[in-house]
Computed example of a mutant assay.
Amino acid sequence: MTAHVIADDTEALAVAAALADEFRADASARDAERRLPRAELDRLSASGLLAVTVPAEHGGADVGAVTLAEIFRLLATADASLAQIPQSHFAYVNVIHRQGDDRQRKFFYGELLAGRRFGNAQSEAGTKHVQDIRTRLEARPDGSYLLNGVKHYSTGALFAHWIPVLARAEDDDLHVAYVPSGTPGVTVVDDWDGLGQRTTASGTVRLENVPVPADRVLPHHLTFRGPQLHGAVAQLLHAAIDVGIAGGALAEAAEFVRAKSRPWFEAGVESAVEDPLLIQRFGELAVQARASEALLREAARTVDAARADLTDDTAAEASIAVAAAKVQAAHAAVEVASALFEVSGTRSALDSLNLHRHWRDARTHTLHDPTRWKIQHIGRYVLTGTRPPRHGLL
């Protein structure tokens, strides 16, 4: 596989905008038919966008959080499923940034620049909670490992060249094993049947005595033993997807009203766009969407500032800023996607139009991480200065 190498932030944003326009054209049909976006992901790989966080000294654009968040927002305005697939890709690139040694970084950065995709095998079902990881890495005498476990919600694994697997070693510490797709013992099952984000292929990964060389295992537990931005960046990208869903839903609602809606007879106007109550509601929804975009940009700037001077205090500021952006974005995505029907009228509910995909995507994606806990951490930080905990979900 070969891929274009993006030079800088400006080019990255231009490429993302062009791909969003391209992906938007068939997004509704892909969702309605549950047609997996293999060709679109190959376009994404070839574009170079998946390598934009590779450091400059290794030949990458080394873009900041502001640019990365905007890339995800742009893609999500077009197709929230497609935007969701590389979220874990960048999260596990960050593990390499932080925990890889020079040889591991050189190898994986080369893979990224060639357009290789990371999936994920992280979450598990039937455990006590989301961080109760039971997949195991068993050390072998030669220093390599055997990997065993079952993963669920493995977004992107079906399309991945590498599947990062979150697992515990014999000391119970968390590690990430980077497993090539097609490795003996790895089975990826396309059994995702969510009401939204239908084409993320967030199915099951089974791991049965999977051999993993020692140099493909990174000590992820060390990420959280000091100030870190792993969780903030991962959550920033989730927030960007929600902001994109809200923006995409609002744009499609406006287009529908302009082209197909009739005014309510009591309004006494000739067209729906002159209806004062519709105008009022669109204004309210636009405020929600704009507030989400503003908080997303502010959170991304805070992450970039913390990256330049990483301390416990700057990391806490970044996590809190991202948490605030995520709360607002989740609310806006669900509200705007639901209000699409309110402002567009009865015809908008026709299943054949598939306008409900925005609400289904919003409702499904915003279940990832409960905003009620983010609000708790924000409140404690404001009242007592208590820093938020260090983990990958904040």
Rank of each mutant, 00 (worst) to 15 (best):
V327T: 06
A315I: 08
R258S: 07
S261Y: 04
V343P: 04
R347I: 13
K260M: 10
H356N: 09
V334Q: 12
F256I: 09
V257W: 09
A337Q: 03
L350D: 12
F341L: 12
V273R: 12
A306H: 02
V343I: 10
R347M: 13
L250T: 00
A329P: 09
A332V: 00
S352A: 15
A286D: 05
S348P: 09
K326V: 01
A339V: 09
G268E: 08
V287E: 12
I320W: 03
W359N: 01
A337G: 06
R262Y: 05
D304H: 14
V287A: 04
S344I: 07
A267W: 04
R290V: 00
R297E: 14
E274S: 11
D304L: 11
A323Q: 06
A294E: 15
A294N: 15
A362K: 04
A246C: 02
F341D: 05
T314N: 11
E298M: 12
A362H: 00
G268H: 11
R363C: 01
I320S: 04
A321R: 10
W264R: 14
A272R: 02
R297Q: 13
L278M: 00
K326D: 11
F256G: 03
L250G: 01
F265W: 15
T302P: 01
D304F: 13
E252T: 11
A362I: 02
R297D: 14
A332T: 03
W359H: 11
R290Q: 12
R297L: 14
R281G: 02
P276S: 07
P263E: 03
A259W: 03
T346H: 13
D275Q: 10
V273T: 14
H331P: 00
V303H: 09
A329N: 10
